[in-house]
Design a protein around this nucleic acid. Sequence first.
DNA 1: ATCCGTCCTGCCAAATTCTCCGACACATCT
DNA 2: AGATGTGTCGGAGAATTTGGCAGGACGGAT
Lengths: 290, 290
Amino acid sequence: MTLERLKHLSVELSAQETVLSGRILPAAHIFQREDVTAFEAVVYNPVICLILQGRKEMTVGDQFVSLAEGDALLVSHDLPVTSRITDASAEAPYRALIFSLDVSILRSLYEQVGEAVTEAHDATSLAASAADPAWTEPMVRYLELMDAPLDAQVLGPMILKEIHYRLLLSPIGGMLRKLLSVDSHASRIAKSIQRIRASFREPLAVGDLAQAAGMSQSSFHEHFKSVTGTTPLQYQKDLRMIEARTLLERGIPSVSVAGFEVGYESPTHFSRDYSRKFGCSPKHHLARAS
Amino acid sequence: MTLERLKHLSVELSAQETVLSGRILPAAHIFQREDVTAFEAVVYNPVICLILQGRKEMTVGDQFVSLAEGDALLVSHDLPVTSRITDASAEAPYRALIFSLDVSILRSLYEQVGEAVTEAHDATSLAASAADPAWTEPMVRYLELMDAPLDAQVLGPMILKEIHYRLLLSPIGGMLRKLLSVDSHASRIAKSIQRIRASFREPLAVGDLAQAAGMSQSSFHEHFKSVTGTTPLQYQKDLRMIEARTLLERGIPSVSVAGFEVGYESPTHFSRDYSRKFGCSPKHHLARAS
DNA sequence: ATCCGTCCTGCCAAATTCTCCGACACATCT
DNA sequence: AGATGTGTCGGAGAATTTGGCAGGACGGAT
């Protein structure tokens, strides 16, 4: 079974990873943890994540996903998620195989595939499903290149392309297809998302975004939510909070400055929002460099 | 262990229940199911529910609770929840012991206990915890009365009062105490809830409610949410939807009429909201009497 | 101990976002 | 044809955000 093979390969790969595999197989990455974690908030990039061992839970907006061994998670676009590992130990660490997705590859493939694909109607930005040999099999072939740098250099990109292709056509690829389809609602929302990400420190003008996307405000909100799982402002706030947290942990002088840095004018309010998001006050995350 | 004793007693009680136990032990009720259910929406009354066997999950507003054997759930006031039984079979049915709570008893006790109680700060309307002998022990004594009708008539109310007393002082009783404390925010919200329940078919005037509760709109929303887990309008909508569903299942002539009955003017919109809430269109729930 | 600055929590009003809700058009089903 | 379901929109109003201000907690410094 290909899943077993992948587990085996990933152990091998993670043994080498510190050295140079990053250069040989740039798209694959093994993530490993030996203990359970509390909820952590991060921003995901487009990625497919296959759980090889352990368990993980995640929340984005209102939806909740639970992943076990053999499950895979397809993230179609940048998304602030909150996740934790719920099953991991020194003997059986949590281990996941992560493939970064390259949107330009997807786009070029989509142009070839074109409209020949049926539209999933309930596509979500966070699609989970059991691993499918259609794309795990090329993943195996990709990982097998780790010991043959020259092969990897030539064949690697080809196999990568195949993986993208399989994902694009797979049942969980619904959101990918929507995002790529030119001028679909989803793709226009994707543009809005990029705009928010580019300037999340500035105040948000939802009206402008809606107009730029060519929708009424109500439609814009609806589509935005269906793509991201949250509202525009929430999305921005999540970005701000995650940024604030890294600032604090990196040892920014004070809480107020951190709040100001990410776009809050009122430290009071920043503190309140922060506590709501992370469950404890910003001061607790401030690096104890002093 | 008292939990084992309760299990035993509840099996006995449920064997008799059809006959007359309802009159002998009016406050206790055994709920039993031999199979797993899909999510169902109902309105809970104030109640303490102790899981004797099986598992249950529930959602109210944004919080999510998972209950296993030996867990108890304290519902402090009327609340529209969505729940399902996730672990039940013919051999090991889901079984729960349910005690209705009597607010007037609680109130009279609270007057005696008065301020001698420490306030829990994170009180929620749906408090879950492991069963505590402090109140399971009197529950045992209550159930043991089932074979002695005369004893039950005299001692029953006393023991009930004791159960209420223990719950009121227990760690999970935080919300109960808040609700009872005269003129606390929680108690004023409770009044608003009653007003919504009494006239959920009419359009909602949140401003009036806030004013009646003597708070600013923002404070009102905040407190309302902390007590109920949702916003006033959501709360009303949940009531409407649950009512609509029973109407449909009872065989109301048409979908439009059902929508109109619960306060919607536009059948179009009613249909959409209904699908969002229950996952399938109102027509599917319309009794197939035709 | 007393002061002082920083941070946290409660409350509010104004502003903005977001959702509701009815309207209409159109596809579907029976 | 009639009833129902889905997409879109505009306007109303519900809900949240935001910043301000007051009061309290905490932790150094003096």
